[in-house]
Structures are given as structure tokens and as C-alpha cells.
């Protein structure tokens, strides 16, 4: 039996034809957007929810909230990864090792060695930014960098966006540990927990884009040897700036009417913190890709 396969008048689009990877930015936007929606929903309805559900289920709800970024990532990144032609093989490993590093090294180093809670909140604004950069920021970003560097880089970096994918993976591991520490160890109110989960997620994703960009550049370009260190410093600085600014926005000034937190400010800042790096990151990655292709076509032309 002869089969007839009609020939297309126009060939399939080259991009679709040759892009066998999961689209990272779309996953991040989906995960971030859904997380913000869930958190906003919880924030607005926390009063009803607290009244509705029995007290004994509250810890379950908090744990569920803590795991939400991980679940979203598993659905929209890891599961989606399995359905593309060229899946990224080390995502789970990076996420798990990132979580272990956070729990075994990162949190003890920050809380017990640097004792940041004992001196940083009481410092001046500039001191806090510098302090958080060189303690919390550098610890977290260095750990995340080490995990990606020694688990996925360079073998599993096939395209530039692998840097973002693995960066997000390690951040998800880190975020999950931070969320569990916050929500399981302290009786955080549900609406506050929702806000904190978004904030932590936003900071980690923002810095993961920077670390991923640095690793990708080192892998695919041949940047100045200081470039990676610079990206590490930038990621640490973002953490160092984001923590006090978010806290400052959330914390109201003293007045004789009282001092009440402003959670919406925190939400807004977290959303901005999530959106800007994605846009900037996608632009930078696109630019780098374009530069690489131009360089390649120049090379081909010269041949």
C-alpha cells in the first residue's frame, strides 16, 4: 500500500524543527505567575481559611504552601522537561543537592556562624545591604554556584538557557528548604507565609538567572575571567539589597496609631523582583545568543 504524504508548500519553521529543549522562560513565568496567584489568593482569604479548616490541619496547609514552588517547578519544568526531545538530565539532582546544601551548609552558616539576626537588622541601611551581601548573599549564591558548577557544568550545558534551567533548579531546592524552615519551625500566619514564600522565591529566582547567565557565558563564550566572579557578586548583591528593601517596605514607620506591617508592599516588591530579572535575563540571553550566532556566521562567511 502506498502512502501519500503531501509535501508542504512551505517547509516547517526551522526553529520548531531544531529546538528540542524545554522553553525555560515560559516555565518560569508560569510557575511564578501561578505562585503569585496562589499566594495572593491565600493572602486575601486567609481569614476565611483559618476559620474554615480545623486547627490541626493548619500545619499541613503551611507545609503544602512551603512545597508549592517545588510542586509547580516539578509540573512546569521537570515534567515538561520529560516531554521534550532533549531533556536536561541533571535537574532533579541539582535541585536535591541544592536543598541539601542549603540545609546542611547554608542555613547553619547564616544563622549560627554569621548570626545575622543578632546584628544585621539593627545596622544602618547601607551596613545592612553590605552585610547581607557578604553574608547571606554570598553564602547562598556561592552554594548554588558550587552545586551547578559541580553537578551540571559543563557537561550538561548544551545551550545557554541550560544555565537558567539549572540555576532555577538549584534555587527551587534552596527555596524549599528556606520555606520549610520558616513555615514548619515558626507558627507563621497563613497570609504572612504566603507573602514570605513569594518573596523568597522571587529573590532566589532572580539570583539564579544571574548565576545561570554567568555559567552559560563562561561555558559558551569566552568572557573575561572576572566575569563569573562578577556575576556571583551581582547575585549576592541582589540578595543583599532585596532583603532589607523588602523588609523596609513591609515594615511601617512608628506613629501614635501603632505600627502595622504593609504586606502589599512586600507583595509588590516580590512581583517586581521576579519580573525584572526575567525580562533582563531573557534580553541578555537573547543578546548573547545573537552575538554568538553573528560571530558564527561571520566565521562561516570568512571560511
Amino acid at each position: 500500500m502506498t502512502s501519500f504524504t503531501p509535501r508542504l508548500l512551505t517547509p516547517p519553521r526551522e526553529k520548531e524543527d531544531i529546538y528540542p529543549y524545554r522553553r525555560v522562560w515560559r516555565s518560569i513565568i508560569l510557575e511564578g505567575g501561578i505562585l503569585i496567584a496562589i499566594a495572593a489568593g491565600l493572602f486575601l482569604t486567609s481569614g476565611f481559611i483559618t476559620d474554615l479548616i480545623p486547627v490541626q490541619f493548619e500545619p499541613v496547609l503551611r507545609i503544602a504552601l512551603a512545597l508549592t514552588p517545588l510542586v509547580l517547578w516539578l509540573i512546569f519544568s521537570w515534567w515538561a522537561e520529560q516531554r521534550v526531545m532533549q531533556p536536561r538530565a541533571r535537574l532533579i539532582a541539582v535541585a536535591v543537592i541544592g536543598a541539601l546544601a542549603a540545609n546542611a551548609v547554608g542555613e547553619p552558616l547564616i544563622n549560627q556562624f554569621f548570626q545575622v539576626e543578632d546584628w544585621l537588622p539593627l545596622s544602618s541601611a547601607i551596613d545592612r545591604i553590605v552585610g547581607y551581601t557578604f553574608t547571606v548573599g554570598i553564602t547562598q549564591e556561592f552554594l548554588k554556584y558550587l552545586v551547578v558548577r559541580y553537578v551540571a557544568w559543563p557537561d550538561h550545558f548544551r545551550i545557554r538557557l541550560d544555565g537558567v534551567a539549572y540555576g532555577v533548579a538549584v534555587s527551587i531546592g534552596y527555596v524549599t528548604v528556606l520555606n520549610l524552615h520558616l513555615l514548619v519551625n515558626t507558627p507563621v500566619a497563613l497570609d504572612v507565609a504566603a507573602q514570605r514564600v513569594v518573596a523568597t522565591y522571587a529573590i532566589q529566582i532572580a539570583t539564579s538567572v544571574v548565576i545561570g547567565y554567568g555559567l552559560s557565558e563562561v561555558r559558551f563564550s569566552d568572557p573575561n575571567p572576572l566575569f563569573l566572579a562578577l556575576m556571583l557578586a551581582l547575585a549576592a548583591l541582589i540578595t543583599g539589597i532585596a532583603i532589607p528593601i523588602r523588609a523596609g517596605l513591609t515594615n511601617a514607620a512608628f506613629s501614635l496609631e501603632g505600627v502595622f506591617p504593609r504586606p502589599l508592599f512586600g507583595f509588590g516588591f516580590s512581583a517586581v523582583l521576579l519580573v525584572i530579572p526575567i525580562f533582563v535575563g531573557s534580553f541578555l540571553f537573547a543578546s548573547a545568543e545573537r552575538r554568538a550566532q553573528e560571530a558564527m556566521s561571520d566565521m562561516e562567511d570568512s571560511i
Binding site: E117, P121, V259, F260
Partner: peptide, 9 residues
């Protein structure tokens, strides 16, 4: 009477 919320970083 003042209600004062302290926030953590």
C-alpha cells in the same frame, strides 16, 4: 495603647 508589629528581615 499602641500595637507594634516587628518584622524580621
Amino acid at each position: 495603647e499602641l500595637i507594634i508589629y516587628l518584622s524580621r528581615d
